[in-house]
Design a protein around this nucleic acid. Structure first.
Lengths: 184, 184
DNA sequence: TCATGATGAGAACGAGTATTCTCACCTGGC
DNA sequence: GCCAGGTGAGAATACTCGTTCTCATCATGA
């Protein structure tokens, strides 16, 4: 074999995913250069291009990794809330609220990347749609109308990002409560 | 006076707003160069920079113009629907649906511009927040919970853009109907 | 020990960008 | 007719970026 001096391919890929998440999420894809990814990850340009033949492939790698990590964190948080007796509405919006108050919150990385229309490829669009479908499927598994809830969730995330505030969560939670309220 | 050979300042500004809307909305701010704006508008670079001293100022000009045009078109469409007897929910989502099926629909220009975090200035953020506050105020004037409705609207727009489909309107309309349904 | 092949550091390349500058031209006032 | 000042076309400037190339280095297998 010929493993690298300090990092094998698995470690290098992981370092790239982490650096891409740190930088692309905060500054957008167009706002981050390959040189910045190299500096942040410690992976040389040569190795970056042997793992991802183009910046577009690096974006795909990042989106797939972020999908895994985000869905995992979100569903774990929701499950924890459900286990303490919250109803699905509170479980979902409490999980969102604590994500939003974490440092560096800048909205949904998938929505934001899709909004950067210039450098977007068909592959990126597929990953982004897959993420949103996966989220809607998960919400459907815990609530009576997952598709409607998914729209409230995306609307709340987008508004929270634009206003730099968690207040939209209050409105979205109220909307969900009104939707799912039992009718005599 | 010294008006331009073929265009006075008002006409040049209007041509810039139109070209910016054609190009920035579809390709994003970072995806359009000043030279492309010149080609599309017919306004020379020299004149562009005398009207807007930087690209960032051109973006502000565009956002303000788009706010005026979009809010006008939207509120007129909603009023027309209300006048024919639609309830507020149908009036709003029918207006959105016909906007979305127009050519070149690419989601909300304000949300998209905010998502392009790299070239965003504080002035842009103010205009974007002003637009969303204006929309929420308008929705509050025609419905019982304008803030909740605004979140459904933004969620539906964002999802329609990502999936290239008007189907999210169906889910959002259903959610609004459930929210505003009379309870005995 | 020596040749091999992969690696990292960084220079090089080619394209694209925002912004400024040059200069020939044209218009309006005298 | 003639001048002054503003104008358009586009060259020039001073970058930045994605991608490729060079070359010295170094671990490995014979």
């Amino acid at each position: 074999m010929s493993p690298a001096a300090t990092m094998d391919d698995t470690a290098a890929t992981g370092a790239l995913e982490q650096a891409a998440d740190d930088l692309f999420y905060v500054h957008g894809v167009a706002g981050v250069s390959m040189a910045q990814i190299r500096d942040r990850s410690g992976v040389s340009l040569r190795r970056m291009y042997s793992i991802c033949p183009s910046k577009s492939d690096l974006v795909s790698l990042w989106l797939r990794a972020r999908h895994r990590v985000w869905m995992d964190g979100f569903s774990v948080a929701v499950s924890r809330n459900l286990a303490t007796g919250s109803d699905p509405t509170d479980a979902v919006f409490d999980a969102l609220a604590s994500w939003m108050t974490a440092t560096n919150f800048r909205g949904c990385g998938f929505i934001n990347t899709h909004a950067e229309s210039s450098e977007l490829t068909e592959q990126h669009v597929e990953i982004i749609r897959g993420h949103k479908q996966s989220l809607a499927r998960y919400l459907s598994s815990i609530s009576a109308d997952g598709d409607a809830l998914a729209i409230l969730v995306d609307g709340a995330i987008v508004q929270a990002a634009m206003f730099g505030s968690v207040e939209p969560i209050v409105h979205a939670r109220r909307a969900a409560r009104m939707m799912f309220e039992e009718r005599p």
